[in-house]
Design a protein around this nucleic acid. Structure first.
Lengths: 250, 250
DNA sequence: AAGTGGTCTAGACCACCAT
DNA sequence: TGGTGGTCTAGACCACTTA
């Protein structure tokens, strides 16, 4: 493991922030993707030539942001999209009773397409760039609850096939990570109310023109690089979208 | 300042968590509301008989949760609802262009009422308990954008009057804090799509039955005690609701 | 037993803000 | 000048996990 010397106070940044950036850089290039495990704290201390307190402060922030996960006695890991709070970190739909349930997604279509101007802009692509366009219906309690259409850059996911999606284990984001080393760590959603388009209403088995939520989401990886654009429609007869602001992250 | 001894490892809780709880308890009883300023770190160290590192770790978490605010050279403060990121911490509406603008609220009605069963339950009150019921229209760029109805326990806000609301400075939550020492630190919202009720549509100047967002919110103070119930309707023709998950809190 | 992360301490030094 | 918070260090000790 090479030692990376950090000059003190470059840009006036505190040392622990510089360490944090170095760790993010390593994560971004996929340095620890295969093992999902980071070197031990003491090893990272030697690598960056900082004390344990400083190293821990850097990692503390990454744990807070749900990018890393620490387990006493085991080590420090890339936070998995499976299991635990992470499962619902990017999924805010609950039953009207308040109960959380994981949806099962059912692929509707998978096609090679070209990015419309607006979507290309959100994905930092050129208009007309080749993208995969994927339609899903998500079932909750064996009933259709959500319809979503998502777009990803073909170059970022070379050779992706319909079967990859259908046969994947776990969530879409864990699939991106396991198969392509692309880790989604942030999403930005806009929510509006609209009359349900006919094609979607049919798949959701609701009345045409019924009021539904229209959610557009951009999913980002390290350094806020956009990876996926998604537009979802959801009937709120049986479920609602929840947002908990100020919840303590523990 | 009395010294509060903390037994080590009561309940197996780490020391800094116990310190954090003590600080939260002091906040909850309004110990520092008048000054908005906490004692200095060194003074708090003496008070709880812990080292500076432990004290800072406790306060770190409260800062992270946007309950406290530290300013180098000045001190540690109760996070104000005015100014800075806090202004939009509990307000997720932006223009379709993505621009954030603060709304101006216009009081529609102020009345003494009795809590319906569902609302009483959310506020931990008995059904029929006396509540203030307040209707607002919020204007953005001089156009009606939101309609909301809110309910608060009369006992918690004794002697509240219509004029208090209309003549307040700043947000509703800063009013609760300044006038009654009640600090809102968390909100939980449920969002659904619905056809706009006629009475609301009239005030928002939109078509009757138009699809709108229906947002129900419970606002909580320390220890997750519910303070306010609110139901809002919003047209999404010009604005949308945004939710940024995983945004770094800095 | 050896390695991992988690806690707690004591102190030095710095940058910022008031007076 | 003196008080405030912010950073960084070095080391002791603990609890947890695996072998």
């Amino acid at each position: 493991m090479p030692k990376e010397l950090l000059e003190q106070n470059a840009d006036g940044l505190p040392l622990y922030r510089m360490v944090k950036q170095r760790i993010l850089d390593s994560l971004a290039v996929g340095e620890w993707v295969s093992s999902q495990t980071l070197p031990s704290q003491s090893e990272l201390c030697r690598r960056y030539n900082v004390s344990i307190g400083t190293l821990r402060k850097a990692v503390d922030e990454l744990v807070q942001e749900r990018i890393l996960l620490r387990k006493a006695g085991l080590g420090t890991f890339i936070a998995p999209h499976e299991s635990g709070p992470m499962l619902f970190h990017f999924f805010n739909i609950v039953g009207r009773d308040g109960e959380k349930r994981m949806p099962v997604s059912r692929l509707q279509s998978f096609s090679l397409s070209r990015a419309p101007a607006k979507i290309a802009e959100r994905l930092h692509l050129k208009p007309g760039a080749p993208v995969y366009r994927i339609e899903n219906v998500r079932m909750i309690d064996n009933e259709p609850a959500l319809h979503d259409t998502l777009y990803v850059d073909c170059e970022r996911f070379p050779g992706m096939a319909r079967e990859d999606f259908e046969n994947r284990e776990g969530t879409i984001y864990s699939f991106y990570l396991a198969r392509y080393g692309v880790n989604i760590i942030r999403t930005v959603e806009s929510i509006a109310a609209t009359a349900c388009p006919a094609a979607v209403a049919k798949r959701l088995v609701i009345a045409n023109q019924a009021p539904v939520l229209e959610m557009t989401r951009v999913a980002l990886t390290y350094h806020d690089v956009p990876i996926e654009y998604r537009i979802s429609y959801m009937s709120t007869l049986k479920h609602v979208y929840v947002n908990d602001q100020g919840k303590s992250r523990r």
